[in-house]
């Protein structure tokens, strides 16, 4: 963990470098927020109870709705996941893989906590 280096803000790794999302204080541990990326895409950004940040694509691949940030965060076997708020499929927050359907995954972003 290198919280100190982030000056209290959360950053995502995009193709062309780090992108600053918001103050860490804006996030409630265990919940997410949606962030608009420079190219118009949306990321769902979460922190867990230890303060570690995660980010995945905000689009729920099962419904096509941009709602992943509104799902509930949980952990199983030490790995954090989010359950889609619509049909409740769970996605690993580090890899973006769907835990309920092997064939589905969403993009996961590196955050400056996940190095």
């Amino acid at each position: 963990m290198n919280d100190d280096k982030t000056n209290g803000s959360i950053r995502l790794r995009l193709d062309d470098g780090w992108f600053e999302v918001c103050e860490r204080a804006r996030l409630v541990p265990g919940r997410g927020v949606a962030a608009l990326l420079p190219d118009g895409r949306q990321a769902a950004v979460f922190t867990d109870r230890t303060g570690r940040a995660y980010a995945i694509d905000n689009r729920d691949p099962f419904t096509g709705a941009y709602v992943m940030s509104r799902g509930l965060l949980g952990s199983a076997h030490g790995r954090a996941f989010v359950a889609s708020p619509l049909l409740k499929q769970r996605f690993d927050l580090e890899t973006g893989e769907c835990l309920d359907d092997e064939e589905v995954s969403v993009q996961a972003y590196l955050t400056d906590h996940s190095k």
Partner: peptide, 11 residues
């Protein structure tokens, strides 16, 4: 589960 983040069922 202690010390973890719980899950979408119990929360």
């Amino acid at each position: 589960a202690r010390g973890g983040d719980g899950c979408e069922i119990c929360k």
